[in-house]
Lab assay of single mutants.
Amino acid sequence: MSIQHFRVALIPFFAAFCLPVFAHPETLVKVKDAEDQLGARVGYIELDLNSGKILESFRPEERFPMMSTFKVLLCGAVLSRVDAGQEQLGRRIHYSQNDLVKYSPVTEKHLTDGMTVRELCSAAITMSDNTAANLLLTTIGGPKELTAFLHNMGDHVTRLDRWEPELNEAIPNDERDTTMPAAMATTLRKLLTGELLTLASRQQLIDWMEADKVAGPLLRSALPAGWFIADKSGAGERGSRGIIAALGPDGKPSRIVVIYTTGSQATMDERNRQIAEIGASLIKHW
Rank of each mutant, 00 (worst) to 15 (best):
S2A: 06
Q4R: 11
I11A: 08
I11G: 07
P12N: 13
P12A: 12
P12V: 09
F13L: 15
F14W: 06
A15V: 15
A15Q: 06
A15R: 00
A15D: 01
F17L: 09
F17V: 11
L19G: 15
L19P: 08
L19S: 14
L19I: 08
V21R: 03
F22V: 07
A23G: 15
H24V: 12
P25T: 10
L28W: 13
V29M: 09
K30E: 07
A34G: 07
Q37L: 14
L38M: 11
G39S: 11
R41Q: 08
Y44S: 00
E46G: 05
E46D: 07
D48G: 05
N50D: 15
G52R: 04
G52S: 08
K53A: 15
L55W: 08
L55E: 08
L55R: 10
L55H: 09
E56G: 14
E56W: 04
S57I: 09
R59C: 03
P60D: 15
P60A: 15
E62R: 05
R63L: 08
R63T: 11
R63Q: 10
R63E: 05
R63H: 10
F64W: 01
P65H: 04
M67D: 04
M67L: 10
S68A: 00
T69D: 01
T69G: 01
L73Q: 04
C75G: 11
V78G: 00
V78A: 05
L79G: 01
S80M: 14
S80V: 12
V82R: 06
V82A: 09
A84D: 14
G85M: 09
G85F: 06
Q86N: 13
Q86K: 11
Q86P: 04
E87G: 04
E87R: 01
Q88E: 13
Q88G: 11
L89P: 06
L89V: 06
G90E: 14
R91S: 05
R91G: 04
R92T: 15
I93R: 02
H94A: 09
H94Y: 14
H94V: 12
S96C: 13
S96D: 14
Q97L: 13
Q97H: 15
Q97P: 15
D99R: 09
L100T: 06
V101G: 08
V106N: 06
T107G: 04
T107A: 07
H110L: 06
D113N: 11
G114A: 07
M115T: 03
M115K: 02
V117A: 03
V117C: 03
R118W: 15
R118K: 09
E119R: 05
E119D: 13
C121R: 00
S122N: 11
A123E: 04
I125S: 01
I125L: 10
T126V: 10
T126P: 01
T126D: 08
M127I: 09
T131G: 10
N134L: 01
N134Y: 02
L136I: 11
L136P: 00
L137T: 08
L137A: 05
T138R: 14
T139R: 15
G142D: 03
P143A: 07
P143Q: 05
P143L: 02
K144G: 14
E145L: 11
L146Q: 03
L146P: 00
A148V: 08
F149I: 06
F149S: 08
L150V: 07
L150W: 11
M153L: 14
M153S: 15
V157G: 10
V157D: 15
L160T: 09
D161Y: 04
R162G: 09
W163D: 09
W163A: 11
P165S: 08
P165K: 04
L167P: 03
N168S: 07
N168V: 06
N168R: 02
N168M: 04
E169A: 15
A170S: 11
I171M: 15
P172I: 15
P172V: 13
N173V: 11
N173Y: 13
D174T: 04
R176W: 09
R176C: 09
D177E: 01
T178V: 04
T178F: 01
T178H: 01
T178M: 02
T179V: 01
M180T: 11
M180G: 11
P181T: 04
P181M: 01
A183Q: 15
A183E: 12
M184I: 09
A185S: 10
T186V: 14
T186Y: 15
T186A: 13
T186P: 09
T187G: 10
T187A: 10
T187V: 10
R189D: 07
L191G: 01
L197A: 03
L197R: 04
L197Y: 06
T198G: 12
A200I: 07
S201V: 03
S201F: 15
Q203K: 07
Q204R: 09
D207E: 15
W208S: 02
E210K: 13
K213A: 09
K213G: 09
K213P: 04
V214D: 02
A215S: 11
G216A: 09
P217G: 09
P217A: 12
L218R: 02
L218Q: 02
L219K: 03
L219R: 02
R220G: 03
R220W: 02
R220S: 03
R220L: 02
R220K: 05
S221R: 12
S221F: 10
S221G: 10
A222H: 13
A222P: 13
A222G: 11
L223T: 11
L223N: 03
L223M: 11
L223P: 02
L223H: 02
L223A: 10
L223K: 07
P224N: 04
P224S: 06
P224H: 06
P224K: 07
A225G: 14
A225D: 13
A225R: 13
G226F: 07
W227E: 00
I229D: 00
I229G: 01
A230V: 05
D231H: 03
D231S: 04
K232L: 00
K232T: 00
A235R: 02
G236E: 02
E237V: 10
E237K: 13
R238F: 14
R238Y: 14
R238N: 14
R238W: 14
R238E: 09
G239Q: 02
S240M: 03
S240R: 01
S240W: 00
R241Q: 04
R241N: 03
G242C: 07
G242L: 00
I243H: 01
I243Y: 07
I243W: 04
A245T: 06
P249Q: 09
D250R: 13
D250T: 11
D250A: 12
G251F: 07
G251D: 10
K252T: 08
K252P: 10
K252M: 12
K252R: 12
K252L: 15
S254P: 08
S254D: 15
R255G: 01
V257G: 00
I259R: 00
Y260V: 06
Y260S: 01
G263R: 07
S264N: 05
A266T: 11
T267L: 10
T267G: 14
M268L: 10
D269R: 11
R271G: 10
I278L: 09
G279S: 08
S281A: 13
I283S: 05
I283V: 03
W286G: 01
W286R: 01
